[in-house]
Write a protein that binds this DNA or RNA. Structure first.
Lengths: 349, 349
DNA sequence: CTGTTAGCGCATTCAG
DNA sequence: CTGAATGCGCTAACAG
């Protein structure tokens, strides 16, 4: 028993279509796959049969017959903060899944802050790769490298950080200005009328995603919460040491600091500084990316909210987009939209 | 750099394994698929070859050879609030995708509030279905029906609303107590020290998911924000009219109403009542499920935050879980975890 | 322009 | 217990 009789409805096959249209399998295949070399009349006959029988190609069989493998290159940062480490792990996990789809990925690590190094890797992508996913950097040389790949017919998707002006196939990541606005709204509302100074830290102001977050943050703070005093953004280089120092300086200079938004990494530095100053609980601190560390700080009530993106989702999405492009499949658009997640300690995964 | 040496791009096939082990294709297949009738010695030989060559079955080829179709039944509510309508749409969209995987889904509608009707549908599931996904209802008869299906070997996944005590394969939905706690934290923090009364509306207190949300909400309110006065929950039956009436009553009786949490549907009723009373902007209102209506209320500043779940994700997840179970594939656990989404007007999709 | 044929990698009879 | 043979639905040469 079990798998009940496969019943009758074994759907129409290409052969059924061919027979119904009175042509050969090959011809049916030609029109279904929009290859030329078929008279308009027979095209019409076949298409009629297709819609009459409700034919839908079996992609599994097609891939098997085509016997084609894909090879993708993922370019990830070598400097490993927690989020990037998680991303790398998820890419590895995705690789297993992809292998089942006859697609393989190689990973190459490069210093994200170094545009030339990144561009060099992109420029040197070997032929034989069917697609590239990369953490991008908004720099002319990087943009040029991406465009060159596009010219060579290699689709590239940008991951986490975008280069909108390049001819990339797709951007897999969050809307960063919106993420900044989200942080600002939470900041303003959590502060609930308290007066004082709000500071902002970023990894680097020349990283597009960080800059965009600040832009969004400042926009909403100015418009919605004009009573709060915004400090100019300081840089922490996504590094715990430097962020610690920066935070200490802020605390020293502003006794009335009530809010802190870190648009980049280095949260352990902030935690250390706040704890040392004994002001961890009173200051509203909003951070990015759910990692083991930020999770702990959130649970302890130091971080008040985390704005995040799901690295697993991003890795899978990049792979799906590349694969769909290469094999001509459609993709479910809203499955590929990366959401701006908000985590409080109550809705942690 | 570049293409790590996977050497030749084609991976090992079962035939390669067979040859390497010095057995026939059939025998290799027997051990790979754990069928018996093979001597331990040859099993060992084959397994050695498998791991030596790093063999991984090609699922596409396997499905093709097996030539098997699956048929699933989705049981959805007939009473159509916006969220359920969206869910139904997403199920339809998922069906298209599933068809490509040789799996087909039928949808049956039933009144969710009627346990007997639901149980009847579940009891009457025709043989020939390989799996069932259903919006459940925590009722003995429904539980029994689910267990019967399980006994018949039909996997069932509960969707959106769970019956934890039943032998369902999987629950696809959010952690509702946690959702309630999330709402409470937002409520308390958005109120930022304001004093007054907080009201709660639910569709029905006998719906497990609504009850759980209230439980979580009350828990956090009592523990974290003891100064706010909690009103006993009122029922709106997930209906705009009744929810309107309930809200009007609340507004009439409590001039000091500062917060409103709706754990169910019927948000249009609330909006109407608040607008009429002219208190839409001052009351912190937290609602569930992002729909065209709640989105509008959020953008207009009436709703302050929406706690949500992604119906597209849920529909796809239910399908994937069923399909993976039926075809013996593993699934990516954390792709199937349904998150508790928080939407402010800044991070709307 | 159209048809014939030989696989793709695997599951499954049916013999031995 | 094991092996040879057949076919799933489709693609891709290669003939006509």
């Amino acid at each position: 028993m079990g798998a009940g009789e496969t019943g009758v409805i074994g759907r129409a096959t290409l052969e059924d279509v061919a027979r119904a249209a009175g042509v050969s399998l090959a011809t049916a295949d030609r029109v279904v796959n929009r290859r030329d070399g078929v008279r308009d009349k027979t095209i019409a006959r076949v298409e009629a049969a297709v819609s009459r029988l409700g034919y839908r190609a079996d992609p599994a069989a097609a891939r098997l017959a085509r016997n084609q493998n894909f090879r993708f290159l993922f370019v990830l940062p070598s400097g490993a903060n927690s989020f990037m480490t998680m991303l790398a792990e998820q890419v590895a996990r995705t690789a297993e899944w992809l292998a089942a789809q006859r697609a393989f990925i190689d990973v190459e690590h490069v210093d994200v802050f170094d545009a030339d190094a990144l561009a060099r890797v992109l420029e040197g992508v070997l032929p034989g790769y069917h697609g590239v996913a990369t953490i991008a950097l908004d720099h002319p040389r990087v943009r040029a490298a991406i465009d060159d790949l596009a010219d060579r017919g290699v689709p590239v998707v940008t991951l986490v950080s975008d280069v909108p002006s390049a001819r990339r196939l797709h951007y897999v990541g969050i809307d960063n200005p919106a993420a900044g606005r989200t942080a600002a709204t939470l900041m303003g509302r959590f502060l609930g009328g308290r007066q004082g100074v709000v500071a902002v830290i970023a990894g680097s102001l020349s990283l597009r995603d960080h800059a965009e977050r600040l832009y969004g943050f400042n926009q909403v703070m100015a418009r919605e919460f004009p009573d709060l005093i915004m400090l100019p953004a300081v840089q922490g280089r996504d590094d715990n040491e430097q962020t610690l120092a920066a935070t200490e300086a802020l605390l020293r200079q502003h006794a009335d600091l009530v809010g802190l938004y870190n648009a980049g990494a280095g949260n352990r530095g902030i935690a250390a500084a706040l704890q040392q100053a004994g002001r961890a609980q009173e200051i509203v601190w909003i951070a990015h990316e759910l990692t083991p560390h930020t999770r702990r700080f959130l649970l302890h009530g130091e971080i008040d909210a985390i704005i995040s993106q799901d690295p697993g989702h991003e890795a899978r999405s990049a792979a799906r987009v590349l694969l769909a492009y290469c094999s001509g499949d459609r993709l479910v658009a809203d499955q590929e939209r990366i959401g701006i997640d908000i985590f409080l300690r109550d809705n942690l995964p």
